[in-house]
């Protein structure tokens, strides 16, 4: 079970308290009704599904109930960082080694 840091509670809490809520930084158009079919398709259906770094939304469902964003590596399953909803996509990620070097 992973530990996830809630950027609102500012605490690491067990995965059980959280729900994944899909990919992050997909903005809903201010002129939704006027979107073209292609733009709507991109907005609603197309997701990146990368091998590696993914930006995604989580909700601290059984805690503060806030939605927030997280950067996770889909290969190692490690959370690189979390940040509050509405904050911009981080331009630089902290470097986290996938391996702890032996003694």
């Amino acid at each position: 079970m992973l530990l996830i840091r809630c950027p609102y509670c500012e605490e690491e809490r067990p995965e059980l308290e959280f729900r994944n809520a899909g990919e992050a930084h997909i903005a809903r158009s201010a002129n939704m009704a006027g979107e073209s079919d292609d733009d709507f398709e991109k907005f609603f259906f197309i997701r990146s599904n990368p091998k590696g770094i993914i930006y995604e939304r989580w909700r601290h469902m059984h805690g503060c109930a806030r939605f927030f964003n997280a950067v996770r590596d889909t290969v190692t399953d490690k959370f690189i960082m979390t940040y509050r909803a509405g904050e911009p996509k981080p331009s630089k990620l902290p470097i986290i080694s996938n391996e702890v070097v032996a003694k």
Binding site: A21, R57, R59, A65, F67, A85, G86
Partner: peptide, 13 residues
């Protein structure tokens, strides 16, 4: 409730 919270917190904050 989750759907409403989602929109309130992230799309219409």
């Amino acid at each position: 409730m989750n759907h409403m919270e989602d929109y309130l917190q992230t799309e219409f904050p």
